[in-house]
Design a protein around this nucleic acid. Sequence first.
DNA 1: ACAATAGTGTCTATGAGACAATATGGT
DNA 2: ACCATATTGTCTCATAGACACTATTGT
Lengths: 242, 242
Amino acid sequence: MAGEVRAQGAVKSGQLDFPRPLTTVDVVIFSILDDKLQVLLVQRPAGEGEPFPLSLALPGGFVDIARDRDLAACAARKLKEKTGVTSPYLEQLGSWGSASRDPRGWSATHAYFALILADASTLTSDARWLPIRDGKLREKLAFDHGEILASAIQRLRNKVEYTSLPAYLMPAEFTLPDLQRVYEIVLDRPLEKSAFRTRILSADMIEPVAKMRRGPNRPAQLYRLKKNSEPVYFVRTFNPPE
Amino acid sequence: MAGEVRAQGAVKSGQLDFPRPLTTVDVVIFSILDDKLQVLLVQRPAGEGEPFPLSLALPGGFVDIARDRDLAACAARKLKEKTGVTSPYLEQLGSWGSASRDPRGWSATHAYFALILADASTLTSDARWLPIRDGKLREKLAFDHGEILASAIQRLRNKVEYTSLPAYLMPAEFTLPDLQRVYEIVLDRPLEKSAFRTRILSADMIEPVAKMRRGPNRPAQLYRLKKNSEPVYFVRTFNPPE
DNA sequence: ACAATAGTGTCTATGAGACAATATGGT
DNA sequence: ACCATATTGTCTCATAGACACTATTGT
């Protein structure tokens, strides 16, 4: 069968004598742009033998065992190649593997999801931001990338209910109303100002800088993330409606 | 380099021309035995060319692309082969892949974790239950399985704080004190009886059966899981001590 | 003064923690 | 009656939700 591959080394062991699935890494890259949650997608190449030519897909590709020490390094590399961003929030999302997801044969992908500041990125020409509306992407994606993206959106929304993840979507300095706006964009529902402030301030995750944001109204205190870059977990979720 | 493998099909595409990592699936199988959280481990074979001969390891092995439709099916197969259990709680844990984790070459494993009722299982001769003490396994494991197991324990404990996962470790019929005991075993700390009962009963996840458990004291109401087998998520965690 | 947004306070509801009180079987 | 465990109730505390109120800037 075309595409099947058998190991040639370690001939004494029967165990290596298995056809090996294709191994890829894909990255779901989120950012806030234009007051919307957006995801970075690329257009599939059109070469002969390429599956899903010209379709939209998650940035990703084969693990390069000569260059990638491990899966996370491979995901970071792909992120950097597409956006130039080097120190994002990067978390493993899960893996998807089956006989049918790639027409070239049995394949498994290791999916990551990243939160970055779009302003700090410079995209390659094949990449662009697409908005998430009503918790979904309108466009169809190649492979099972639609499913992977849906899973990433669900995970992001879920975690935003009880963690400080949106902090990774913020510039270095931001105000509390800025941060609340990002929470609201991701969750797609308004939050109570008072409860929000109490929660964030008591979480000990941000600290004020000696500056204010000025505008045509009362100035707002600017904050920055505290040094430790681990996300904070709250003991309660925001009470979801129903 | 021995063990490297290149694709032979789809010659028109440069993309398939990558050495393929080894692809495996490993399963962390938990159960409650002897009032302790235990994990099912197997002994590595001793054949020539086998890495970590006779070491303890997680049950798992290569994906068999001829038999396994997808990764979850592969995990379910491995669970069934070792325990005979066919409908457990089975959740993907994550994946681990690097150049160094397997001496045979660049490899990636897809890890799953399962909760089963040990009484309902019949082990193969190479498998046995090992207790988790103080949140850790005392024994060293082959490959990076120690790290994978630690991650599974952390995930389990974390989720038990705010979900109904322990219900999958229970027999078909159980009492509320039984269930509380399992929560306490996994979390390794006592829970308040009253708060526990309120939470579980208001979660609408169990229903009483028309029987009582009798003993040398007041009988306890027997319950069973409601039909829908999805785990329940609580909006608050049990308040962890500090 | 007024508009606009930042930030605080007050009141209520919910659910956990602590722990006491009561219930119901076996012996 | 007494023991052991199941089950319920009471009181307090923390925090979210609702929403009103005050504060501080530019115009």
